[in-house]
Amino acid sequence: MTELELGAPTRAEVCVVAVADVFRGDGEIICNPIGTIPMIGGRLARATFEPDLAMTDGEAKLVANDEAVPAPADLVIEHFNPYRHMFDWVWNAKRHVMMGATQVDRYGNQNIAAIGDYQQPRTQLLGYRGAPGNTINHTTSYWVPNHGPKVVCEKVDTVCGIGYDRAAELGPEVARYHEIRRVVTNLCVLDFETTDHRMRLRSLHPGVTVEEVAAATGFDLVVPDDVPESRLPTDDELALIREVIDPAATREQEVPNP
């Protein structure tokens, strides 16, 4: 299949491969991306370079299907994985989760509980969910489909998922399972690969400038002299995304093409 037939990759598809790359090297663990593009990206990683990842159907089963949202009748079930069993994986560090973040700061502290004063919040969100347990126990990444200065922000109102500064306060022994690997947004990929684990601009999605990311970020990002462009999907990856994993193109609703 030629590139011409496939057409140029959309922003959503660039996000999908950026998510997939987050799980590169993870081997045989639970890959647990939460959200539309995260799930598609995780499935892509497993269908290509990380075949031993284990993934859920969104509920209580680990399934072998490549489709992001398989039809119930088509499920290929590998394992019974109710919520209580998921905690065993979490506490065993056999999991890499990609969560959402209503707020995330320069050290990767994440808030999904409430905006404003916690005791009487301006906006009540989901709650702490599993973020404290996830971040202290195993590798965590974040997905931000709406990169803006109130989301990628100076200070989170409530620390649900703990970042590198909080982990450093706990000390290297206590925080030895803590890793915030990456933040994938609709504009760019961010990581913490700096000496003090401050957030760094890792790559820019095609068409996005450093200035645009800086304006959409509520603090000064570490910006290397040369920021590469985010990796583009290969033809095989594009075909998989479009024809197998997400034929309904739900990814394009989560991140519209600019």
Binding site: W91, Y118, A131, I136, T158, L170, A175, Y177
Partner: peptide, 13 residues
């Protein structure tokens, strides 16, 4: 005993 909650604002709230 568990590690869950260490470093988070659960200890504040």
């Amino acid at each position: 005993p568990t590690r869950v909650g260490l470093g988070s604002d659960l200890f504040r709230d």
